[in-house]
Design a protein around this nucleic acid. Structure first.
Lengths: 211, 211
DNA sequence: TAGATTGTTAATCGATTAACAATC
DNA sequence: TAGATTGTTAATCGATTAACAATC
């Protein structure tokens, strides 16, 4: 019973389901009920069943869910079985950390080139990823079937880069610059706003100290 | 009219308000109405007024809000006027990127030491931050009035580090390991789950391609 | 079969949005 | 003063939770 529109709240929980199911499968757990999963994950069992049923009925009454099957379903829903080609723009500290980040290995997410405007970075190689001059960005995207652009530039450059990659046909952006990009209607974005996250942490820190 | 409990939804919007107000102040904007701010930020004007009034009445009927004053109030609410001492655990790619990240300069957030278990890292210096053996972590926290621990270790080590820093009295954790830490009641956490964020991006990418 | 647990509808709760009196 | 815009209460909307018939 595929719903037309999955709410952002549900989408944000999907990776967490996938993580717990992956861990459980590795531990050799064969089946799980929504009740048991709710206790492990700190969610409500009804909510878990509702979430799963946005995408289809994966369970069996009286039994629960098969862990392996459910994990595979989640991987499929999340698009982890597909292969994606990404370029990184901004080979600074964060950009290099992203390239070197090991967490991508499992998925079909591949960073195939990086771009920077710093002459010293251009021509270098970060963990197998070549760094090109950002002036070549648009041309490279057009010629290499790129799905995703990762923006890890300073704030001030981010919108301009977003415009460039959208002009080259990019529909999906992973944005690490702490700025709200203005995007075309059909372009999706996922933000990692480090300084916003720190601000939230400082708020919570202050609040908890006041108690 | 300070509410006892500010909802997570409101808290997550505070850094965004702060960002827009900071930008506007830099541009020389003196006053702003909730309506104008709502148009700039893509939020509802009622929501903005509700959010602000969780912390007090900062506006003036018929006029709006003074940008400078409001920005200062936001900085104060977020705890940016306070000074915080943090240690980083895990001086890998992400850990080093965090230390080098320029976005902290403004705030009173200071990383004063780093810890790792890799012998090659220990004793090195990252942008002025010394890397110590993780075996000294607890002792260091006890002796140096640390407010915040940043966990940037592999998943498998994160819980153990969390336990260690909590035992040393830490009440606030910035967690970059993609794992849900089990924390004591009075400890707050802010997560940056890169691989969850990527999974959400891949989900959106897949969904938007299907249209 | 009896017990367990799903899938789904209904009830509740909280967050967002609208409305408007207060007032600068 | 008249117009504008807040602060706040009320209405709406959507997300979470509860309930339960269906069924393995």
């Amino acid at each position: 019973m595929l719903k037309k529109d999955i709410s952002e709240a549900v989408i944000k929980r999907l990776p967490k389901y996938y993580r717990y199911l992956t861990d459980m499968e590795k531990l050799g757990v064969l089946k799980v009920s929504s009740k048991e999963l709710s206790e492990r994950m700190g969610l409500n069992a009804s909510q878990i069943r509702q979430d799963f049923n946005c995408f289809g009925g994966f369970g069996q009454q009286g039994y629960g869910y098969n862990v392996k099957t459910l994990r595979e379903q989640m991987a499929n829903i999340l698009g982890l079985l597909n292969s994606y080609r990404a370029v990184l723009v901004g080979a600074g500290n964060i950009g290099r950390a992203i390239i070197n980040y090991a967490g991508f290995k499992e998925s079909g997410f591949n960073i195939i080139a990086a771009f920077d405007m710093n002459e010293e970075m251009i021509g270098s190689n970060i963990n197998g990823v070549e760094v090109y001059n950002v002036s070549q960005l648009q041309d490279y995207i057009l010629k290499n079937q790129i799905d995703i652009a990762i923006i890890a530039t300073p704030k001030a450059k981010a919108q301009q880069i977003a415009d460039t990659v959208m002009d080259a046909g990019i529909k999906s952006i992973w944005n690490f610059a702490t700025v709200d990009l203005k995007l075309k209607e059909d372009v999706c974005v996922e933000n990692v706003h480090l300084s916003d996250s720190l601000n939230v942490l400082l708020y919570k820190t202050k609040s908890s100290l006041q108690k």
